[in-house]
Write a protein that binds this DNA or RNA. Sequence first.
RNA 1: GCCGCCUUAGCUCAGCCGGUAGAGCGGCGCAUUCGUAAUGCGUAGGUCGGGUGUUCGAGUCACCCAGGCGGCACCA
Length: 648
Amino acid sequence: MIDLIFPDGSKRSYEAGATGRTVAASISPSLEKRALLAKLDGQLFDLDRPLPRGGAIQIVTRDAPEALEVIRHDTAHVLAEAVQELFPGTQVTIGPNVEDGFYYDFARDEPFSLDDLPVIEKRMREIVARDEKITREEWDRDAAIKHFRDIGEAYKAEIIEGIPAGEPITVYRQGEWKDLCRGPHLPSTRHVGQGFKLTKLAGAYWRGDHRNAQLQRIYGTAWASEADLEAHLKRIEEAERRDHRKLGAAMDLFHIQEEGKGMVFWHPKGWTLYRTLVDYMRRREAEAGYLEVKTPQILDRSLWERSGHWEKFHSDMFVCETDEGETLAVKPMNCPGHIQLFNHGQRSYRELPLRFAEFEGLHRYEGSGGLHGLLRVRGLAQDDGHIFCREDQIESETRDFLKLLNRVYADLGVELHSVKLALRPELRAGTDEMWDMTEAMLERAARAVGLEFDILPGEGGFYAPKLEFHLKDAIGRTWQCGTLQLDMVMPERLDATYIGEDGQKHRPVMLHRAIFGSIERFLGVLIEHHAGAFPLWLAPVQAVVATITSDADDYAFAAAAAMRKAGLRVETDLRNEKVGYKVREHSLAKVPVIAVVGKREAEEGKVALRRLGSAAQQIVSLDEAVRTLVEEATPPDLRPAPTPSPAA
RNA sequence: GCCGCCUUAGCUCAGCCGGUAGAGCGGCGCAUUCGUAAUGCGUAGGUCGGGUGUUCGAGUCACCCAGGCGGCACCA
């Protein structure tokens, strides 16, 4: 007998061998009908699998989040079955869930084409209609390896070899088809439902390693109902409208062309936005004790050899040769340059922490397939900074940096998606002892300030472990923006020293840090985040003064001049068009304020303000309009501090 | 760099089974002076990403190259 405790706290005993289904049936026939899985002490079980022990039981139905995960995974299995029916000889590999769906990787000599997807999808719907029963079997390890080898499934055999001894080898049978899988699964294919769609086709390396064979990946999305699927597809469609590449063109911000792939041509409006953002950061950093510097774009190979870039980062660098036989490299990072500044003259412990900031351009030779609008470019600039300090200053510097980062993200209205701690990569400079130390110190500092993060082994920079601050784009992909890296390697390689209190030479620790990361990338995220509708202080064109009739032209000119004099970025629209037309055009261009002036306003010295996204008009005197707009257009760091509330 | 797809006027897109390119928007001109998301009429724009080939004939078929898009790898 086993004892089960239900979510409502009640307890019942069942005979050994009871399954989720028998438990559900014992409660009500309708629950049995809706039951998909059993959850015992938090672990999901196939509905027809005997429960191995007593515990807290829950019958999982279609509307539960756990059910959706299993539905997605089973859809991947149905996909694999359909593919193997339609394309004999195709090997299956793995098919995990991803956000909103799943994929399955196949090994097949012939490439799949996009035209195959509807055909595969049709067969999948047939398999669902066949209502194939899904059953679990435990196999003997050697027999399983032999079986999968015999039927030509080399990848599956390889997976089994990697399963630790002692773990059961489970095979799920689904009609005539079977697959190695940990499970759990739905009772039968009917429960997959019709709320799925195959979405894209891609190449992907076996086990994520480019030295391995490239497999063919089919992505799909799956939902508990067709309505949920429709809603999801609609969300994607809406998100695509926020794409910074489309908005960048519509708002005349920038473009990229063939002759400079990954290199941005910033248009006047885009550059205004860029400068506004960087000016803001300059003030924030100055306030936080950073000293802005500028170091050379191109430096001799010998420096890059000493820093380690030549050896570890060479394939990412643009290199040039002079007629005199020198080899130079365009800087991909500012750190070696900043160490040259640190090393110029003798440094005292009294100067530490010394914080350098730089906004100059960098160039990195990114693989052609990875370029992506502003989010992944070859020519970029960072809000780069390097802090030289003593070990005992690491924690307070980390704390101050995180405070600044949070302040900036809050001012700009972006939301931190996640934080990762990336540890030593395979290809690295420095000794293991150094890595042991820097990893431990960075993690300790991060924990000391209460940061929550995931650990990414093998993903650190070649010279230092790093904290990565990730932001999300319109369609949910995450991008590393801010970073904090704790480096003992570079100061040693480039021999940075300071004179300590004891009169001896000491090695400083170097913190590499950025809040935007790449300014280009950050702007891309920012454009998508605001869907182009920037707060007034960031908007490249803050207001357009638009006339109703040409009688108001002179007044419109004067009004615009008054606004410009007050520091606002203003354009005039005196074209011979109807106001409705002008309002529409500037609204589509995401101009935050349209100041409409007609005969009435001209006579009375007023303007009719219309805010983006609202049809309401606010008729105020020109003076008042200038005053309110100037106040609203003040960058967050220049706003008067809120009056402190009286001490409680 | 790898896999799949795409590449036609400034922009968005039509162009069936190969017979020497169309629309809307935008631009320009004229008329209209019209109160808050598209005023009317007229007009000029392309040789169909680049190249090679098949063919009497290619935007339309084949191959190669480039760029872009979605992934993978790499990475801010």
